[in-house]
């Protein structure tokens, strides 16, 4: 569903949407702020602060525009998740290694994402707060074997110590690029198809949604 957001008409620029999921206190806000922080520029935070962040990257000569969508972790907003996920290329699911509950929540989200977006979305399961390893309640083996069982990658990070975050996102970007390229090959080079299927008309929900994700990277 989430077609790799490759800009078909203006060279090699990829636009990817990544959703950020995690319970309230797992530190996902700090994690993403760390990542988008610019040492040379104090005004790194957008006007929407940590809820919506963008980052421009250059990976093996290809430009990548990353849009990171934070989602609300509270139970009361759970039902509304799907409208955030749609057309996502990747998801970062954060839990707190000292909080078993937050890991259970990650499992729920994985199920939901797979159900909604199939195997095209690249999943990253992230155990945050490794600086508090002495209070660890989620074992490394358990987390890693779970991630493998659902086709996700597992990472350990510490937002506090700025550990593992850069690697996590770089890895995710590379995987999303691979997925996008595979999809391009599959489509043949159907470059001109974007005009006709530009917008999915979605009023009746039984209709399969066939909108390619943000194809036009020139605008916005």
């Amino acid at each position: 569903m989430a077609a790799g957001g490759a800009g078909g008409n203006s060279g090699k620029t990829y636009s990817f949407k990544v959703v950020l999921l995690g319970e309230g206190c797992v530190g996902k806000t700090s994690l993403v702020l760390r990542y988008c922080e610019n040492k040379f520029n104090d005004k790194h935070i957008t006007t929407l602060q940590a809820s919506f962040l963008t980052k421009k990257l250059n990976i093996t000569g290809k430009r990548v525009n990353l849009a990171i969508w934070d989602t609300a972790g509270q139970e009361r907003f759970h039902a509304l998740g799907p409208i955030y996920y749609r057309d996502s290329n990747g998801a970062v699911l954060v839990y707190d290694i000292t909080d078993e509950d937050s890991f259970q929540k990650v499992k729920n989200w994985v199920k939901e994402l797979r159900k909604m977006l199939g195997n095209e979305i690249c999943l990253c399961i992230v155990g945050n707060k490794i600086d508090l390893d002495k209070d660890r309640h989620v074992s490394v083996e358990e987390a890693e074997s779970y991630a493998e069982s659902v086709g996700a990658k597992h990472y350990h990070t510490s937002a506090k110590l700025n550990k593992g975050i850069e690697e996590l996102f770089l890895d995710l970007c590379k995987r999303m690029m691979e997925t996008a390229q595979a999809e391009e090959r599959l489509k043949g080079n159907g470059a001109s198809q974007s005009a006709s299927s530009r917008r999915g008309v979605q009023i009746v929900d039984d209709e399969p949604q066939a909108t390619p994700a943000g194809g036009c990277c020139s605008s916005g």
């Binding site: 806000t29 809820s51 609300a72 972790g73 509270q74």
Partner: peptide
Amino acid sequence: AAIGADDLL
């Protein structure tokens, strides 16, 4: 700590 979706929504 900045405003995230947990606060925004």
